[in-house]
């Protein structure tokens, strides 16, 4: 029988418990006390007085969790329903990022001229925050009518998430062993065949590293995009609840966003490992 590694199960639980404890300690709580004159006074105590504690958070947000797909009102839906809206738009933006980023990476990797021309621009654009791209997206698609909002969001996600795919693909193309290319030369494979049978398979592991990192960024960007566009989704839910002073929901959103991001990363790294094992 396989030995169970208690450490692997236990230690994360201890970590979670300690984190909850720390959260509890810094969070605020409301205490009522009766004054001498018989009136009752509410006092906020704690280090961060407005931060709800773990128990309070659970009590106030459980309706979003126990009915994760419920739709009560436009702004009052289950947490996974909100997440789903966000995932759909992220998937679209991510797809655009890959469709644009992969060939761009190939061009950079294949042509040193192209690389010299555009690498500096890429290095400058890469660290720009989604908050900076978003208004540009709105301006670019201002005339698109009803879909202007969605296009601006997709633009922002794609343009932020694209770079790891571009750069990793370029690195992968440059790293194709000369030996493999010599096989193509000796056999006189056509350009298309060399690309399909040699270059793309040889670059796949690098591409998937890029794809995984890009997905991480695409998901990271969603909150900013929804805050600015007001599209319904988990980021928008977070922002609305903050504006309404319902701080418990913020914590719920953060945890959900984190878990979803973690799951996406795991799924991608499984795929990535599959392709790496071939080489």
């Amino acid at each position: 029988m396989k030995k169970i590694h208690w450490d692997a199960v236990l230690m994360p639980l201890v970590g979670i418990a300690l984190t909850l404890l720390a959260w509890q300690m810094i969070s605020g709580r409301i205490v009522t006390r009766s004054l001498a004159d018989g009136t009752v006074e509410e006092v906020k105590l704690g280090w961060v007085q407005d931060l709800p504690g773990p128990v309070q958070t659970w009590e106030k947000t459980r309706k979003y969790v126990v009915e994760p797909f419920a739709k009560r009102e436009e702004l009052d839906q289950g947490i996974l329903r909100f997440t789903w809206y966000s995932l759909v738009i992220v998937a679209k933006g991510y797809a655009i990022a890959l469709i644009l980023g992969t060939p761009l990476g190939f061009l950079l990797g294949l042509s040193s001229t192209f690389s010299k021309m555009f690498d500096p621009i890429i290095q400058v654009l890469r660290p720009v925050s989604p908050l900076a791209w978003m208004p540009l997206g709105v301006v670019l698609f201002a005339n698109a009518g009803k879909s202007a909002n969605e296009l601006a969001a997709l633009f922002t996600i794609a343009v932020c998430a694209m770079w790891p795919t571009v750069l990793n693909t370029a690195v992968g193309v440059r790293a194709i062993p000369q030996d493999y290319l010599n096989v193509a030369r000796v056999l006189k494979l056509s350009r298309t065949q060399t690309l399909l049978k040699i270059m793309i398979p040889a670059t796949l592991p690098y591409m998937f590293t890029g794809y995984r990192l890009s997905l991480g960024i695409a998901w990271l960007v969603i909150v900013a995009v929804e805050m600015l566009t007001g599209r319904i989704g988990i980021g928008n839910f977070l922002w609305n609840e903050y504006n309404n002073g319902l701080y418990t929901s913020i914590v719920l959103c953060i945890v959900t966003i984190g878990l979803v991001g973690f799951a996406l990363d795991r799924a991608m790294s499984l795929l990535e490992r599959r392709f790496k094992s071939i080489l």
């Binding site: 096989v183 006189k188 040889a202 080489l279």
Partner: peptide, 30 residues
């Protein structure tokens, strides 16, 4: 270069994502 010369290198230079048969077929197809 051209496939009218069969080359065997010191390291066999097989494409790792192809089976033995596919590696040979790559040239035969050509």
């Amino acid at each position: 270069p051209g496939p009218d010369r069969g080359v065997v290198f010191q390291s066999p230079n097989l494409l790792p994502w192809m089976t033995a048969l596919e590696n040979v077929m790559l040239g035969v197809d050509q």
